[in-house]
Computed example of a mutant assay.
Amino acid sequence: MRNNMIIGYTAGVYDLFHIGHLNLLKNAKGMCDKLIVGVTVDELVSYKNKKAFIPYEERIEMVRACRYVDAVVPQDNMDKLEMCKKLGASYLFVGDDWYGTEKWKNYEVEFEKNNIKIIYFPYTKGISSTRIRELLHQERGASLTDLK
């Protein structure tokens, strides 16, 4: 860290950007001097047999335009610890839907060894990109696989 600047990092697909995304970014920025956001590249989204509704180039520009975001980087792998170390981040911010899971308990141990704290923010109830896709399906009659 330079000049005692506190750097925070978070990452996500940010497809169908919604208030939950905005809440996470706003809360994260409130805890650090510089917030760096990783936006998942299309190729990495497809590893879950999903497809982003909005192309990467547009998603990264929307996140970059958010006033709470100081810098945006491509997320081209799932190793958030590696990215935090590379960026000099003191905090990793995630939604609390991950809290308490075995995977994230293990992450907490690894991050702590590297003096990086994982901060969980409340998941915004009632909204998600998946929910938006479902609503689009209901309204337009589109196949869910078309919106996957």
Rank of each mutant, 00 (worst) to 15 (best):
G8W: 08
G12T: 04
Y14Q: 09
Y14V: 01
D15A: 01
L16Q: 01
H18Q: 02
H18G: 10
H18T: 01
L25H: 03
K26N: 05
G30E: 07
G30T: 07
G30F: 03
C32D: 00
C32H: 01
L35C: 05
V37L: 11
G38V: 08
V41F: 10
L44H: 07
S46R: 15
K48M: 13
K50M: 14
A52L: 09
I54E: 07
I54V: 15
P55E: 13
R59H: 07
I60L: 08
E61I: 13
M62G: 06
A65G: 11
Y68C: 08
A71Y: 04
V73L: 08
N77W: 07
M78H: 10
E82V: 08
C84F: 02
C84P: 07
A89F: 05
Y91I: 02
Y91E: 03
L92M: 11
G95V: 01
D97Q: 06
D97W: 00
D97N: 10
D97T: 02
W98V: 00
K103M: 15
K103F: 15
W104A: 05
V109K: 15
F111L: 08
F111W: 05
N114D: 12
N114K: 14
I118K: 03
F121E: 02
P122W: 05
G126A: 05
T130V: 13
I132D: 10
Q138L: 14
Q138S: 14
A142R: 12
S143L: 15
D146P: 06
K148F: 09
K148S: 12
